[in-house]
Design a protein around this nucleic acid. Structure first.
Lengths: 169, 169
DNA sequence: GTCTCGCACGAAAGAAACTTGCATCCGGAA
DNA sequence: TTCCGGATGCAAGTTTCTTTCGTGCGAGAC
């Protein structure tokens, strides 16, 4: 299941392709080819190679949460009591398993975890906090930040020239 | 540019389609149709309708930041001095304009903004803080959380039955 | 210097998917 | 009951994706 991705080198062609794909996957390979000065089959081969290397992790549709009834986005900083490997792994699994938890990062600093949570109502969030935090004896405290404005949302990675030419994987 | 999306109603077919698409856009409409018990053209028409309604905002490729040289993910809580509408808008524009800022939310609570930043190095982050925070007289203070583990990353929205049957848009 | 090998390319053919047109069916209103 | 709007499935048409094949370029061996 977790096969090691092969090591590959990304050139400026690959970066150009990635820049387009991380904005819009529906762009035809022919159009991408014109943009980066390559033929469609060449584009297709490079995309496949980057998929196999794990550079492209997935092709997904971005859904507006508000339009499917999930209108509240919340940030949560979680502080744990013990940072034992076992307990951390358990916490990671719990957080990651919750569908309401859109993103979860283990961080340094004044908090141990940062979560991005999407819920339909504050009642649902209250329920989630009970399930994930109050029921977890290893959670010391957590702080809630309710999003009033999703100023910028995405997973786009900055693709500057520094990324090119280097071997990764 | 900002046309109002038409109001539509999502049923369980639409939710089933969305659930698949927000995991993998490459799934053929024929396969989606089999999964939700609909023909391929019906699936295609529903997808188009949801795109036009703004429910589906984009089709994007997810890129592994580490494999394109952007190996550091950082959370930043930003506190501003004045919450004047003008100053807030200015801050939003500045933050959103930076390619390193992957996500930016305006929030309630002890902070005013929460950012997700992706950079190739701590030096780059230091440079970014100077540009975005120290140079901005309205930024009171900011706190940094460096991600050690991206436990869960994505934009997937929980699609429970509660979302169905309701008119949105 | 020359040869050979490996790798990536472009062009073209073939396969698959997407898109559209059309007749039908279902449910609500007159 | 009748009519009408909306959504469906099938089938044809179009575009895109995928594969195959021959060519060209550069690195390394001789």
């Amino acid at each position: 299941m977790a096969r090691r991705p092969p090591t590959i080198t990304l050139d400026s062609f690959d970066l150009g392709i990635l820049a387009i794909l991380q904005r819009d996957t529906t762009t035809p390979q022919r159009v991408i080819g014109e943009a980066v000065h390559l033929s469609a089959p060449a584009v297709q081969r490079r995309i496949r190679r980057m998929e196999e290397a794990g550079v492209i992790q997935a092709h997904v549709a971005v859904i507006d949460p508000a339009l499917v009834g999930q209108s509240i986005t919340i940030f949560v900083e979680v502080e744990v009591i013990s940072e034992t490997a076992d307990l951390l792994d358990a916490a990671k699994r719990d957080f990651a398993a919750a569908p309401e938890v859109q993103q979860c990062y283990y961080v340094t600093g004044e908090a141990d975890f940062v979560l991005v949570v999407v819920v339909p109502s504050m009642a649902a969030y209250e329920s989630l906090t009970r399930r994930l935090f109050f029921n977890n004896p290893n959670v010391k405290r957590f702080r809630t930040f309710v999003a009033m404005d999703r100023v910028k949302v995405g997973l786009a990675v900055p693709l500057d020239e520094a990324s090119g030419g280097s071997t990764v994987g």
